[in-house]
């Protein structure tokens, strides 16, 4: 990709958007996971958790382009991004599958390590895919993600709250990139270019429709179920509700 070309700038914008939607909440996850630790341990857990989120990205970025050249790994990466994109549009469920805040140091460390791994993998895969094999852009994506992870959390989550369309746009972008990865896997790439170059546009567009469509459908179902079950949420502590 030529520096300064329209395709280059589109990739730059995509990478920044990816870092915002996939990096913006990492520090919050780490802080919430270490919430029940004593304060001094909590501070340490947050520091090392954020450090780990960045260090893992550095390591993964290094291998990302090489790994994604292995047959079918782009398909796997694309499917992961589909899942993250759909998940992004869903409300917070109460499913019991999550690992979570723990009062024990090891429990919190385990949560943070697993979360760091997943958060770094999805971010790096999406950056690598948007970079279209340009190492310079991959490194740019890494550099942009660091301040967003360390300082951006509150701002990014505020942005999503004030402008919920940001979430839909982020999910749509992930759907596009995921679709793009499917057609660019080394196994299909040459065939697609030779026989059906239009698929390079159709599959990513279908990816957007799948993520946004499925996300909206599942979200409205979950929302309807919740409204029947609970009504409006009041988090005020019951014992002090009226005195």
């Amino acid at each position: 990709m030529e520096f300064g070309s329209p395709a280059f700038w589109i990739a730059v914008l995509q990478i920044i958007a990816i870092d915002i939607v996939l990096g913006g909440d990492n520090a919050v996850v780490i802080a919430l996971a270490s919430r029940r630790l004593p304060p001094d341990l909590q501070r340490k857990a947050i520091f090392w958790g954020v450090f780990g989120a960045i260090a893992l990205r550095v390591v993964l970025i290094f291998f990302a382009l090489t790994l994604l050249a292995i047959p079918y790994l782009k398909v796997v990466g694309g499917l992961l991004l589909f899942w993250i994109g759909i998940k992004m549009m869903l409300p917070h469920d109460d499913g019991g599958h999550e690992i979570d805040a723990s009062t024990h140091l090891w429990g919190a460390i385990k949560t943070i390590i697993v979360a760091d791994a997943v958060m770094s993998v999805d971010n790096v895969i999406a950056i690598a895919a948007a970079s279209k094999d340009s190492m310079a852009l991959v490194i740019f994506g890494l550099v942009v993600s660091v301040p967003i992870i360390v300082w951006g959390s509150r701002l990014v989550l505020k942005l999503m709250e004030r402008f919920p369309v940001v979430i839909t746009l982020g999910a749509a972008l992930l759907g596009w990139i995921a679709g793009d990865m499917l057609v660019r896997d080394v196994v299909f790439k040459d065939w697609v270019i030779a026989n059906a170059p239009l698929l390079n546009w159709i599959v990513p567009a279908a990816g957007v429709l799948v993520v946004v469509g499925l996300g909206k459908l599942l979200a409205s179902r979950a929302g309807a179920a919740k409204a029947v079950a609970e009504g409006p949420v009041d988090l005020a502590a019951p014992e002090t509700k009226r005195d």
Partner: peptide, 12 residues
């Protein structure tokens, strides 16, 4: 705090 990873890793 409605980030995708918060929804994935932190219980409601």
């Amino acid at each position: 705090l409605a980030g995708v990873h918060v929804k994935t890793f932190i219980k409601r």
